[in-house]
Design a protein around this nucleic acid. Structure first.
Lengths: 139, 139
DNA sequence: ATTACATGTAATTATTATAGTTACAGGTAT
DNA sequence: ATACCTGTAACTATAATAATTACATGTAAT
């Protein structure tokens, strides 16, 4: 099990929009990511829906819609919908309600799982695209 | 995408071993979890490999091999192999090495992803089965 | 207006993981 | 010898990902 690479690709796309000052078509971007343009358009569609990029039908090129420092990795993570809200961990359905453990296990475990997920998301919240771009610039 | 319910089932099984003082066969346990015995045996096999339970071929019943307070949820998480080490997040393969972004994106993103994963695992490290059992006892 | 080219999106395929299930070999105990 | 258990392999159904093809629709330059 892994979290979909859509997340990493989303970060890649946004970083490229900042660093490549040419017109960034889905084909250009696909060349950098090394995948096909349709997939890029799909992910860009998600980033657009989250108000992170500007792009128009028929018009070549996507652009960032916010400053780099205003976009956190959590924004990207949520935009590409790799994990449903509070559902990083799944809990088995229908444990036996006639068993003391089965009856209570779900509600006991759920808050623990959510707090683990939130701890992970908090790290993403504190890293911005600016951090990523600076790090790449350093290389 | 979600982390397999094997993790939740693993916790359920260990909790049951503590609270149900009868002999816990794979069929008994399957009745509480509400799944089938073969799946339970498979998960118990993983817990055994991680030295968390004791169980013998042909001999009915599994038992905890450690004290409740000594088993963290991280131990269970790792035992049931829901996520490979440092690979909660996946990064797209083969970004274009001729592109400045493509060339550097993987090594830039990886440490961020790992630290997010570690933050999540740290929460699991600080919750023990004893906490889970006490919480269930409170209900 | 026609042409060229872009985005948006649906449909298809291959791959992989999960979860459920059946079947049975082999161990244990009465 | 019998009954019952664990360990494990094999098979199925389901779902998500990622890659790909195809095409409708929008934009803009000539």
């Amino acid at each position: 099990m892994t979290i979909s690479s859509r997340f990493a690709v989303g970060i890649h796309i946004l970083t490229l929009l900042e660093l490549n000052k040419e017109i960034n078509t889905s084909e250009t971007i696909a060349g950098s990511v090394n995948t096909n343009p349709a997939l890029i358009r799909k992910i860009i569609g998600m980033l657009k829906k989250a108000d992170l990029v500007e792009v128009h039908p028929g018009k070549a090129g996507a652009k960032l819609k916010k400053g780099l420092a205003e976009i956190t990795l959590l924004d990207v993570y949520q935009a590409v919908e790799v994990v449903s809200e509070n559902e990083l961990f799944s809990i088995h359905d229908h444990p036996n309600p006639d068993c003391f453990v089965g009856k209570n296990i779900q509600q006991t475990i759920e808050p623990i799982f959510i707090s683990a997920q939130l701890a992970m998301e908090k790290v993403l919240l504190h890293v911005t695209l600016e951090d990523v771009v600076k790090e790449i610039d350093n290389k």
